[in-house]
Every structure is written in C-alpha cells, then in structure tokens.
Amino acid sequence: MAKTKVLVTVKTYPTLSQKYDELVCTAGFLEDGSWIRVYPVPFRKLDTRYKKWQWIELELVKNDSDPRNESFRPYDYEDITLGEVISTKNGWAERKKFALTKVYTNMSELIQEAKNRAIGTSLAVFKPSVVIDFIWKPCAREWDEKKVKAIYARAAQGNLFDTEEEKEVKKLFKIVDKIPYEFSYVFQSEDGIKRTLMIEDWEVCALYRRYVNEYHMSEIDACKKVREKYLDEFAKKRDLYFFLGTTLKHHFISKNPFIIIGTFTPPLAQPQEPSLFDLNYE
C-alpha cells in the first residue's frame, strides 16, 4: 500500500475511549492543498512522534465508521515516516500556501456545505469578521470513571510480545490530565450572526496546564492568561484564522456542528512604504 503525505496542522487534546485509550484527532493538508482527517490516533503512540506543521507519510484507509469525506484512519500506527517541519520564515509564506488556499468568511454558508451530503465539508479554514471575546466555563473535572478503569486495566495487562520499552511504558502509564474548563471564541462572520465556538486545540489546553503546573497559578489566573494569549495577542496583534472541524456525533444533527480545532496566527502584513514612483504629484 502506498503511503500518503500529510502536512499536520491540527492535533486536538486527547479524549478517552474504552476501546483505544486516549485518542487524538489529527488533521492537515495533502500535497494538493485539500484537507484530510486522520482518526483515531492513540495519543500514547503518536504524541511524541511528530510536530505540528511537519510532513508525515503513512498508509491510510477510509474510516468506514466515519461518513465524513475527509476522514481516514492509519493502516499501521507504527509505520510513519517523518519529514520536514515547515518554518515560519518570510512571514509564514510557506505555511500560508496551504492554510490560505481556501478561506471561508461566512459561517452560515459553511454550515450549509456541511449539511449538504453531496459536499459534506467537515474541515475548513475560517476567517472571522470580528472577534468579540475569548471565554471559559467550568466543565467536568475528572474523566469518566468507567473509561478510566478500563484503560488502566488494559495498561496493566502483560503481553508476551511486548518489547522492554513497551513494558516500561505500561509501568509508567498515567492518563493525561483532564482540563476542568472549556475555552471558546465569541465572534461574528459575514452573516452578521454572533456565535460562540469551543476550541479543542492541543495548544490551548497545554498552555492552561503550563500556567497551573509550572507557574503554580490558580485556575482562574491561568484561564485569564490563556485569554490574554488568544484574545489580546492572537486576535488583536496577529492575523487570526480558525481551523474548524465537525464532530462525528453532531455533523448532521447539530445546528452548528463545527468546533475550533486549531488556530493559524501569522503576523499581520506590514504596510509598505510608498516609493517616489507611487506618489501623486499635481
């Protein structure tokens, strides 16, 4: 089976699955600029394997349990070839070639595309007209107990064919921390409708954990610092775009099936100094 080349641009924060342990949704661009979703991806296998904006090559097959057009699953989780990491040189020019190939600006039109089974768009780059706020609210503080017990039970099981490294990983196995807050952007698009979309990007959750665990901030102070980063810096000082994705459960039934699965924040274009030849003399 031939390998597919994917430029990874999205890694969501892990969720728990009784079947696969911790799962991460990975998405990115193919060489032709079209979107692809790689799911499910076991977090413990792949978290340290690749970075965002890195080319990877792996064998993929259509995910039969997921009707969304862009959804594929790895054929072999271990057989992944790592490639170049695209830099941010020249104002993120190389990254823009992929991220800004097709940008949506009207949320209502994007939702219609998602609901249209002939099109079924489930991944998109989106540019909000106005970012109004970045908010947080409390959510469940702990993972589902039944799922946690099932995962730890599997981790404790020995396998005659485990390598020494795999055995050591099982000894040290610890489920990733649950984030007790949900973060969301409040914004408007060209349709003029005010919307609130949750963001499930790995980086927003990792930033919160860093403020709490490394800087020993209170939870509320950590949330305020996350807001400062995503609102005061990304929305006001950079050129902010959302990477949007639908959830499988809500794709065809929810009024708005999209969530924010990542952000793209190149620097704002610098105004060019006019030359003598550009000036209008009377």
Rank of each mutant, 00 (worst) to 15 (best):
A2L: 13
K3M: 14
T4F: 11
S17T: 06
S17G: 06
Q18K: 12
Q18H: 11
K19P: 05
D21W: 12
D21Y: 12
C25F: 11
C25K: 03
F29V: 05
F29R: 09
E31P: 07
D32W: 04
I36H: 01
V38F: 07
Y39P: 04
Y39N: 05
K45V: 15
T48G: 15
R49L: 15
Y50T: 01
W53Q: 03
L58R: 06
L58N: 04
L60S: 00
N63D: 15
S65H: 12
F72C: 04
R73V: 13
P74Y: 07
Y75H: 12
D76C: 08
D79H: 08
T81W: 10
I86Y: 03
K89I: 10
N90G: 09
G91M: 00
W92Y: 13
A93Q: 14
K97G: 06
F98L: 08
L100M: 06
V103W: 00
Y104N: 15
E109S: 12
I111T: 08
E113A: 06
E113S: 00
R117K: 14
T121S: 14
A124L: 03
V125K: 09
P128A: 07
V131D: 07
I132G: 09
D133H: 09
F134E: 01
I135C: 08
K137E: 12
P138W: 08
C139S: 04
C139F: 09
W143K: 09
D144G: 05
I151E: 06
Y152C: 04
A153W: 10
R154S: 12
A155V: 01
L160V: 10
T163V: 02
E165W: 11
E165V: 12
E166L: 10
E168F: 06
K170G: 09
K170M: 00
F173E: 03
Y181H: 10
F183K: 08
Y185C: 08
G192Q: 10
I193G: 02
I193V: 12
R195M: 07
M198V: 14
I199P: 04
L207D: 08
Y208N: 01
Y211D: 00
Y211C: 07
Y211Q: 11
H216K: 14
C223L: 01
K225C: 04
R227A: 02
K229M: 11
Y230S: 00
A235Y: 05
K236H: 14
R238D: 05
D239S: 12
D239I: 07
D239M: 03
F242M: 01
G245V: 01
T246R: 01
H251P: 06
K255E: 15
N256Q: 13
N256W: 02
P257R: 11
F258C: 07
I259H: 10
I259L: 15
G262A: 10
T265L: 00
P267D: 13
E273W: 11
P274K: 13
F277D: 14
L279Q: 13
Y281N: 09
Y281T: 04
